[in-house]
Amino acid sequence: MLLAVIRREGVDVPALCEHEAIEPCGSCRLCMVEITKKEWDGWKNHVTSCLYPVEDGLIVSTHTDQVMEIRKTILDLYMARCPGSEVIQKMAEEYGIYKTSYITVPDADNCIMCYACTRICEVLGKSAIAAVERGHRKVIAPPFGDVPPDCIGCLSCAHICPTDVIKWNDEDGTRTIWKKNFELITCKECGKNIISREFADYIIEKREVPAEYFETCDDCKRAEVARKMGSLVTRAKEVSL
């Protein structure tokens, strides 16, 4: 897509809803650019570069007055929607916006409704959460607002969220996210938390990775490697002596 080419050329175009691991969806509209087609008599249009297929001979303007105006307005709108988000604030400041011109949305949280979480969950093959309702009431939620039956507690949604709104908690060998509790696998050597049992089971089943790989933490596994190789070295030395 066009955005990748723009970035490859070292031009900075902002984007919030875009991530390599998910299909572009064009929700944040910050990556909007102006395109001109020479062969169509200089026909111009504004497009989201994350979704626009690359074409030969296309003229792309990334920082025209109109484009900047759109980005500013969008960030201004975000400031009204997510007054508490540092990511948004920082981005907005770069465009000279310190305070929203609009009416702060009541009961605002930091969700910018970019669908990154639902899209990553879909890539994972679970689609445990989805956008429900329409328009301004739209929220990301598990089915029926209940505990999501398909969630495996992998935290991908929380990690990919650009504004860090999806909260989770690991405590006493239990992970909680979307109000669902998961057993955490703890290292059989040192007791450190590894990943949720359901996530591990999912990988084991889907990708045929041996289950015992998930029993110890990375530190203990490295120590084990050192011990095993060490004993080989020791034996080799003994043999040569």
Binding site: S27, R29, I74, Y102, M113, G135, H136, K138
Partner: peptide
């Protein structure tokens, strides 16, 4: 339109809402 917007993109979801509020 605020009610019927699909809510996917920001200008439509937030922008129309603000127009309505104003």
């Amino acid at each position: 339109l605020v009610m019927e917007s699909c809510g996917k993109c920001v200008p439509c979801r937030e922008g129309l809402y603000q127009l309505y509020q104003l």
